[in-house]
């Protein structure tokens, strides 16, 4: 996974020699790991999806109508596979909506987290129940 400077946000490739030798250009020596898809996550795209869903249990079909598999893969910050939970701490700490990807292709969205998130704060959404 690539590294992101905790201070200036500069991004370095996985195992970049320069950060091992001298740290970041800004002088900082601490980095986050982060999923590459994270940097490309299109806020409008997430907004489009989260604004339309209030309760999603078997949402894959709905999502697939508009999104590719690759796009769906970008959504989660908690992934469950056979009782093993992968947690993307950085995105949760950054108050992104909680989206749980199940191993059977389902997605669960925490609605309260959407409204508490940076994305939802102070905004009204049209909510569609599916």
């Amino acid at each position: 996974m690539p590294h992101k400077c905790t201070k200036c946000g500069r991004i370095y490739d996985e195992g970049a020699e320069e950060i091992i030798k001298r740290g970041c250009e800004c002088g900082n020596r601490f980095f986050f790991y982060f999923r590459k898809v994270e940097e490309n996550k299109d806020k409008d795209f997430v907004k489009k999806v989260t604004s339309r869903i209030v309760e999603v249990k078997k949402a894959k079909e709905f999502l697939e109508k508009e999104l590719t598999d690759e796009e769906i893969e970008k959504l989660w910050n908690i992934k469950v596979e056979d009782g093993v939970y992968e947690i993307d701490l950085a995105s949760l700490l950054n108050k992104e909506p909680i989206i749980v990807a199940g191993d059977d292709g389902t997605f669960l969205l925490s609605i309260s987290s959407i409204f508490e998130s940076k994305l939802g704060k102070g905004k009204k959404y049209y909510i569609e129940r599916i």
Binding site: T6, F30, F32, Y33, L89, A90, L93, N94
Partner: peptide, 12 residues
């Protein structure tokens, strides 16, 4: 990752 992420976020 846990330690660095927590501390980085508290700083932020």
């Amino acid at each position: 990752q846990v330690n660095v992420t927590i501390i980085g976020n508290l700083e932020a």
